[in-house]
Design a protein around this nucleic acid. Sequence first.
DNA 1: GATAGAATCTGTAGCGGCTACAGATACAAG
DNA 2: CTTGTATCTGTAGCCGCTACAGATTCTATC
Lengths: 132, 132
Amino acid sequence: MARMGIGALARRTGCNIETIRYYERIGLLPPPPRSAGGHRVYDENHAGRLSFIRRGRALGFPLDHVAELLGLAEDDADICADVRTLAAARLGDVRAKLRDLRRLEAALKEMIARCEDEGSSCCPILEALQEP
Amino acid sequence: MARMGIGALARRTGCNIETIRYYERIGLLPPPPRSAGGHRVYDENHAGRLSFIRRGRALGFPLDHVAELLGLAEDDADICADVRTLAAARLGDVRAKLRDLRRLEAALKEMIARCEDEGSSCCPILEALQEP
DNA sequence: GATAGAATCTGTAGCGGCTACAGATACAAG
DNA sequence: CTTGTATCTGTAGCCGCTACAGATTCTATC
């Protein structure tokens, strides 16, 4: 029950139609059964799996990590440690990006501030980019 | 004076050789003169321009913004306002990314913490990804 | 059933910003 | 003159989609 076409699945999961087909093409979503005319027919399982993928992506996992997480989710073994390891690695990535962005923010802010202080004839931002 | 091959330019600017050629291909770096045998010969001007590009990139400007900044830098007009506008827009982008990443960091941290609290048989991280 | 309009199909190409080859040629040092 | 490094061109690949084009199928109304 709750069969749906690709459009309905897209609306439910907030995922673009083209992206759904793309996930199928790269093997991340299993190919669903087709209607007589060849249209894809999805069910709740597909919706769940796709939501999982989307949430993983939203947490910044690249697709191959998401695939790995999906694989782990299918086993029933004691996998908490593995999952935690992946999540911790992602946390490291995120924190590194945060550091970079914070530096960036400071640099941009400072340049803009300097630009406002001075007269308008020459541009401190461009100078900042030009000089080492 | 200070003529150099593409390798020397790459070392000086910290920019990959392939990337230099790529910048030339897309029109961001002007094609330098060539030696008799066809090797590119750069001078200080090229080095300056390439450094500018790299610094702009390091500040997170996409290449088309960098091109715009370079264009502005070549005019002598009163351009401070334009530059500031670009920089302010970038600052907005950076801050939006920062917000997202901070949320991400919090979510990952919380998941990892929950995973450590509980017994190891089921995995809260996977559950968090599975449930809405 | 006919028909209109929406939804879906396949396949291919493009985005940004590089990076990685392969195979040929040029240059610099001894 | 030889050896070894540097550079040359051209093409294809990376990630994660997105955007078409042109053909087909589904659904709702009459």
